[in-house]
Write a protein that binds this DNA or RNA. Structure first.
Lengths: 239, 239
DNA sequence: CATCATATGTTGTATGATGAATTATGAGTT
DNA sequence: AACTCATAATTCATCATACAACATATGATG
């Protein structure tokens, strides 16, 4: 049994969310100045004709989004730098396939340069964790598993080797958007082992280049690795 | 007059936030299973010894973070795919400089490949908006302005030319973390015009490569452009 | 067994009151 | 006039209670 989820044409969104959306709009349109502003809770209660509960929950949303900052006894203020707004990947006006391809390209953009950076900065422990992930992946393949977790762990190890924590964070953020799209699920079981072999070969090539400290080679290996994955998954991919 | 802001050693964080943090921890530690769970609001009221208002605001935080989903009449459930979690760039255990450098590297990772993609896919309108941004930047420089807005507009135009909306979103997300760090503010006014000239020259070189459809050249021009910017701003940058 | 009314539990919203922090006000002093 | 300090007014934070809306379990009824 499945629920419809995505508001089924009559699914009234919560009041607090509607209010929050309206306030977001006002802020991003610039109707509310940057440094200060925002009417008091009681004023908003009148404007929207809802209870304080709703207003407070709406403002709470804006707070965790980093759009406003509330000060007890003073008021709620629009943040000076709306820079702290989080990054999301959920444009709903995109087809499922476009979403996947674009997310994959985003990943590619970073992973290629990531491999180059890793080649320049990797430490011995980095190399060890990379190779450990590859060995685990091999074991998974031998045992009949898909080994996607281990695959991702290898890429994470590379991100770690860049010594840039944001790379790790971002890849980890991107991961869930990509993993489930892997075409291995719908692949002919006959072809699976061959595909997995080539996957591992590509991984080892990347690892070797990084170990050698050859940034250019590492980048190229990563690029062709991901490009192949993109082709298998979607057929497209000019990158 | 400045406020201390960042919790000045005794600044008690709001109850709702403390509760929200504890719940986040429970979820990410896996103490709360993935599909279902989360005690009822009244149960949490007893567990934490706070009012329902606080509990509700805490859950509201988790909701906008994409960690849980609330269903009226049923309960609050941990999201199946915590993938929807937003990406933030605010690791507070990083020095100001490390933060800047790492964010800049993240930008570099994407912009280099971005330029390559743009060279392969740019349309005529893309080229026009790129060149328009450059002309506006030149005008800004001539009028004595720093022209950072126009600079960023140029990079955004390139992102647009990739035909990948996520690239635009992500660059726009990264923008605020980078713009203010530009070293032009503290530069010797004598050297400023020369620096701005070289900036524009690099921009035009990138634009030309993209216009030509030369992906490799576009990537390289972008790489050296950003690398120079990173050096000016921080001295570091092995990339 | 199938169907429907009811009861129960849960989240959503409304309302009033109190506490805590900030700012505005004004009296009083120098 | 200028400064100090207590007081009041404003505003968000929290608490407590009640009701509405929705979902599910229960049990009676046919």
């Amino acid at each position: 049994m499945q629920k419809p989820e995505g508001l089924a044409l009559g699914m009234r969104p919560k009041l607090s969310e509607r209010v929050a959306d309206q306030l977001r709009e006002r802020i991003q349109k610039g109707e509310l100045a940057l440094g200060e502003q925002l009417p008091t809770e009681s004023a908003l209660v009148e404007q929207f004709g809802v209870s304080r509960t709703v207003i407070r929950e709406a403002i709470s949303s804006l707070r965790v989004d980093g759009l406003v900052k509330a000060h007890q006894g003073r008021g709620v203020f629009v943040c000076e730098d709306i820079s702290q707004q989080p990054f999301r990947l959920c444009s709903k006006d995109l087809s499922e396939k476009d979403h996947m391809v674009q997310a994959m390209e985003l990943r590619m953009c970073m992973e290629v340069t990531n491999a180059e950076l890793a080649a320049a900065r990797r430490t011995d422990p980095d190399i060890q964790s990379m190779e450990a992930a590859l060995n685990r992946q091999h074991a998974a393949h031998l045992s009949g598993a898909l080994g996607q977790t281990e695959d991702f762990a290898f890429h994470l190890a590379i991100a770690n080797a860049t010594q840039n924590s944001y790379m790790v964070d971002f890849l980890r953020f991107l991961g869930p958007y990509i993993i489930p799209a892997n075409a291995m699920h719908q692949m002919d079981p006959k072809e699976l082992p061959a595909y997995q072999n080539s996957l591992r070969a590509e991984h080892w090539a990347i690892a070797a280049a990084i170990k050698d400290g050859d940034a250019t080679a590492a980048g190229e290996e990563m690029r062709s690795h991901l490009r192949r994955g993109l082709q298998v998954n979607s057929g497209a991919g000019i990158l």
